[in-house]
Design a binder for these strands. Sequence first.
DNA 1: TATTGTTATACTCTATAACTATA
DNA 2: TATAGTTATAGAGTATAACAATA
Lengths: 149, 149
Amino acid sequence: MSDRDARFAEAGRLAQMLVDIARQAMADFAGTVAELGLPVPLARAIVLLSTPAPMRDLAEQLNCDRSYITSLADQLEQRGLVERVTGEDRRIKLLALTSAGRAMRDQISAAVAERNMILLRLSGAERKRLAPLLEKLLHDPSTTDREIP
Amino acid sequence: MSDRDARFAEAGRLAQMLVDIARQAMADFAGTVAELGLPVPLARAIVLLSTPAPMRDLAEQLNCDRSYITSLADQLEQRGLVERVTGEDRRIKLLALTSAGRAMRDQISAAVAERNMILLRLSGAERKRLAPLLEKLLHDPSTTDREIP
DNA sequence: TATTGTTATACTCTATAACTATA
DNA sequence: TATAGTTATAGAGTATAACAATA
């Protein structure tokens, strides 16, 4: 196997591990919020609503269509977790957590933090080493600036 | 903010980054295989079929129900990428890549390797530092063996 | 009786297009 | 006319339950 192939293979394994770890983390999140009776999309929205936000903004943060936010908002309203608040610009509706919604948000945060895999499995020193690597992976240095000979 | 809270917050950020990076990697994979005309679930199955495997095994590796594998197998067969081969135990059907399937698998592997974010964004030294951290996150040291004071 | 795969069916997540109200 | 949200509808991905064939 050429040097190049070896590097490809090694990087492939790392990428696979990364995806598997994230899958595990997402499954953990799903399990955690399921115990609170929440489907994942509703829980994600609640977590983002630390402060009232226009539905449009939520669509951007969740990376989905505005029409889907309508559906999420309907479900959250039915559960009494958010209310729609008409904005100053009367086209805009803010989603605001109700007190039940805030309580739910606190429960989610606490439960998620407690089971955070990174805290459970890595020491402080290891977390310090991990952070800059993740930063670099996340903040695309334009992707094309490194050569693969 | 207490020390404990600070650690929770920091670990939360790391977990979020990890999930975001994986999402990016998965989107890259989806884009790559879309160029080859494949939906993600079919591509994932093809990648796993380096050697013929019972449908039951595939279900386990893809972490889904056997009935769904039936549906994937139907679609792959229609595209001429796999064939069902009855096993020695005649209840079992192996999925085996056809030559077109093997060609597709090679194409996927090459395209994915070329765009591997880890290769594009991390140096060899950085990859060396990342590997043991991912190993540790992946191979659950029973999750409960570390205390969170 | 237990296991493998199949069928029929249904649910969740999400998008698209056309619409309404406001700006 | 452009933007925010809504409605109706549809598609992908996946599961559940009942079933057939084989062990």
